[in-house]
């Protein structure tokens, strides 16, 4: 990297890595404390909540002993965090299977849908955002602004139902619901993944688009854009080479936040399309008071957020060379 020649750069980078690590630890500490406290937050005893009102005292005592619900908080916390470090998140109360395996089984589905949804959103938002930002008030800008206000106000289940009706029931282009893992081949997999991803993208695209539109309009007022114009460079070239990159930083942050949110799994979309993802897992586990699984999901989401933020940091240094030396 070019900035490596500046003496201060490596130290700055090290400092940032250290800050990032401290940030990660702080977040994990808070999240694990909160997750462990879930047991105490469930009204009454978790064992009673799980077994129901007709449970015998003996059954309750057995469950408490098996999952350690009756032990004091610090002991329980340390035990659980110790397990976390070694990859042992306990066992599901419902199925008796290891929590980690249960989550890892469903993670790829949610991960893929989230990636596809963000990808589709960006694919639509970037060209439209650049175009409308460069012609604010033009006919396309007004049409897109109206359309995005409408799309933003459509609940995701309505978008999903309409998509299913139009693209699955009426035309038969896509399956109504279900899932094919990547091991069935990429074509079969995308066939099932496409509609749910589009349903999520419908809600996310307008915000991304309007963010980019505003930043493009602001960048266009910069001197370097005007000098590029006086050098006779074609308009399209100026937009994509000189305007898009400096305008893309807020977009990258926003897209990462969206991705982080989608990683927790969309309960609505996963239910609608009968997807075996994390949202469905949460939907089963929460009413069943399957505390080990819920705790695992909470930790996963926290780690995902921190990881995504680290990626955004990295994205910044790629997009804006000035942040490299800081």
């Amino acid at each position: 990297m070019a900035v490596g020649t500046l003496a201060a750069a490596p130290r700055a980078r090290l400092g940032r890595a250290a800050r990032r690590a401290a940030h990660l630890l702080a977040v994990l500490l808070l999240v694990t404390l909160a997750a462990a406290a879930l047991v105490d937050l469930v009204p009454g005893s978790p064992a009673v909540a799980i077994l129901g009102p007709s449970a015998t005292p003996q059954q309750i005592a057995e469950l408490d002993a098996a999952y350690g619900f009756d032990r004091p908080f610090p002991e329980r916390y340390l035990d659980w965090v110790g397990g976390l470090v070694t990859g042992d998140l306990g066992r599901s109360v419902q199925s008796g299977r290891p929590v980690l395996a249960t989550i890892l089984e469903r993670l790829p589905v949610t991960l893929e849908i989230a990636l596809l949804a963000v990808g589709i959103s960006l694919l639509v938002a970037v060209p439209l955002g650049v175009h409308t930002g460069s012609r604010v008030g033009g006919p396309l800008d007004r049409a897109v602004t109206a359309a995005s206000s409408a799309l933003m106000s459509i609940p995701v289940f309505v978008a999903g139902v309409v998509l299913i009706y139009l693209l699955a029931l009426t035309t038969g282009w896509f399956p109504v619901s279900g899932w094919a893992p990547l091991t069935d081949g990429i074509a079969a997999n995308l066939h099932f993944a496409f509609l749910p991803a589009v349903a999520l993208a419908v809600g996310e695209t307008p915000a991304l688009l309007r963010l980019l539109r505003g930043d493009v309009a602001a960048t266009l007022r910069e001197d370097f854009v005007r000098t590029a114009a006086t050098r006779g460079l074609p308009r399209r070239y100026i937009l994509f080479r000189h305007v898009l990159r400096p305008s893309a930083l807020p977009l990258v942050t926003m897209a990462a936040v969206v991705f982080g949110r989608l990683l927790a799994g969309s309960v609505v979309v996963e239910s609608l399309f009968a997807l075996p993802g994390l949202g469905g897992l949460a939907l089963q586990s929460i009413p069943a008071k399957d505390i080990p699984v819920i705790q695992g999901l909470v930790v996963l989401v926290a780690v995902a957020y921190v990881a995504v933020n680290a990626l955004v940091d990295l994205g910044y240094t790629v997009l804006d060379p000035r942040t490299r030396s800081r």
């Binding site: 001197d223 000098t227 050098r231 804006d320």
Partner: peptide, 14 residues
Amino acid sequence: MVFQDPMSALNPVV
């Protein structure tokens, strides 16, 4: 053309 402020006349990310 050469302008007054070279910093703002140059694209910072290219």
